[in-house]
Amino acid sequence: MKAAGRICDVQAGDIIDGRFRVERRIGAGGMGTVVCATHLQLGEPVAIKFLNPEAAEDDDSRCRFLREARTSARLRNEHVARLMDYGVCEDGSPILVMEFLAGEDLGQALHRRGPLPVDEVVEYLLQACEALAEAHARGLVHRDLKPSNLFLTRGADGDPLVKVLDFGISKSYTGGADDSLNAKITGSYGLVGSPAYMSPEQVSGHDVCPKTDIWALGVVMYECLIAECPFERKSMAEVFVAVLKNDPPPLQSKRGDVPESMEKLCGWCLHKATEGRCPSVVSFAEELFQVAPTDARRVMVRRIRRLAQAAHTDSDRTEGSESPPIAGTSVTAWKRTRAVRRLRPG
């Protein structure tokens, strides 16, 4: 075993921060990489996320990374991937230490299985609504909901458990302490989100609100039922035209067993104008519950209502006192001093 050099060059067996042994790489994207590691003292698996070299040198990418850390720390719901630690390594690269999730994301499941059973779609989306209900109650819009950001794992009781991932481009729609981060992220990336899942207001560069996530829920629901994204096109320009002007084919024309109520809910979510769209995650959950009601789902809808009505008092308590260091500020090497403050969800 050896200590990792540059964090971007880690390999299986490398030690990060003297505490984590890298086991394998489990994901990579344009901005960052995720590895599975073992906490040497606890013997438990964790997921460590870090920026790729180019992104690590870009202030705006670091701001997005910091946004993900702060947001994940504020959200306590079991349907949000849990943040365990945040820090800056000796080479100056920030890392997130998250709970390790065994399973696959919804996009992988759709690729492997094709269209999903109606009952399964209802279950997955209701669980995602729990995470969104808390986020919206805290004034946050995810802005990048899509199948690859919904992870399918299992809870301690063995039942299916959905975790919402990647709050890195979430945005406060009520104003607050992170407005400067919002401006930096949006200013750098312009249109923020994954084009085929972006709402008309995102495509048009207008302000987002919770109904922006409702639109994305409608797109995800449509894709889950027929294994096709309704707005996917060959070019980004064609995607934007489709989002702004085209209605997708009716679900029932693609799949005969889709209930009429589900067809109507999807259309309500995909209304081009926000004023005509499903108004809240609570309304979405209440309508979706009627498609395949069970006692457990009735309890889930009640929980979503409570989360949506929750006060924001504990989110204000940690502002300014336990936030991780802002990207670009001077930070002493994490391993040497342990000076980096840690964010914990609970």
Rank of each mutant, 00 (worst) to 15 (best):
G5Y: 01
G5F: 05
R6Q: 13
R6A: 15
C8A: 13
V10T: 12
D14R: 15
V22W: 07
E23A: 10
E23P: 12
R25G: 11
I26C: 08
I26H: 12
G27P: 03
M31H: 14
M31A: 08
G32Y: 03
V35T: 07
C36K: 15
A37D: 02
I48G: 02
L51N: 02
N52I: 09
D59C: 05
D60S: 15
C63M: 15
L66K: 10
R67W: 04
T71M: 11
T71R: 08
R74M: 05
R76G: 05
R76T: 04
E78S: 13
A81K: 05
D85P: 02
G92F: 03
M98T: 06
E104Q: 15
D105R: 14
Q108P: 03
H111I: 06
R112P: 10
R113F: 01
G114E: 10
L116W: 04
P117I: 08
V122Q: 01
L125E: 08
L126M: 02
Q127P: 02
Q127N: 12
R143L: 03
P147R: 12
P147V: 08
G158W: 07
D159W: 09
D159S: 14
P160C: 12
L165A: 00
G175E: 11
D178V: 08
N182V: 08
A183G: 14
A183C: 11
S194Y: 10
P195W: 09
Y197Q: 14
P200V: 12
P200M: 01
E201K: 08
Q202S: 07
G205C: 04
H206C: 02
V208P: 00
K211V: 10
T212Q: 08
W215E: 00
L217Q: 00
G218M: 00
V219M: 01
M221H: 02
Y222T: 09
I226M: 04
R233L: 00
K234I: 00
M236R: 14
E238R: 13
V239N: 07
A242Y: 00
V243N: 13
V243P: 03
V243F: 00
L244M: 13
K245L: 04
N246G: 00
D247T: 14
R255G: 05
R255L: 01
V258P: 10
P259G: 08
M262L: 15
K264M: 02
K264T: 03
G267W: 11
H271N: 11
T274E: 11
R277Y: 01
C278P: 01
S280M: 06
Q290T: 12
P293I: 01
T294P: 09
D295H: 15
R297K: 09
R303T: 09
I304F: 10
R306G: 03
R306E: 14
A308L: 03
D314N: 10
S321V: 14
S321W: 09
P324Y: 00
A327D: 01
T332F: 12
A333E: 11
W334A: 15
R336Q: 12
T337E: 10
L343R: 04
P345F: 06
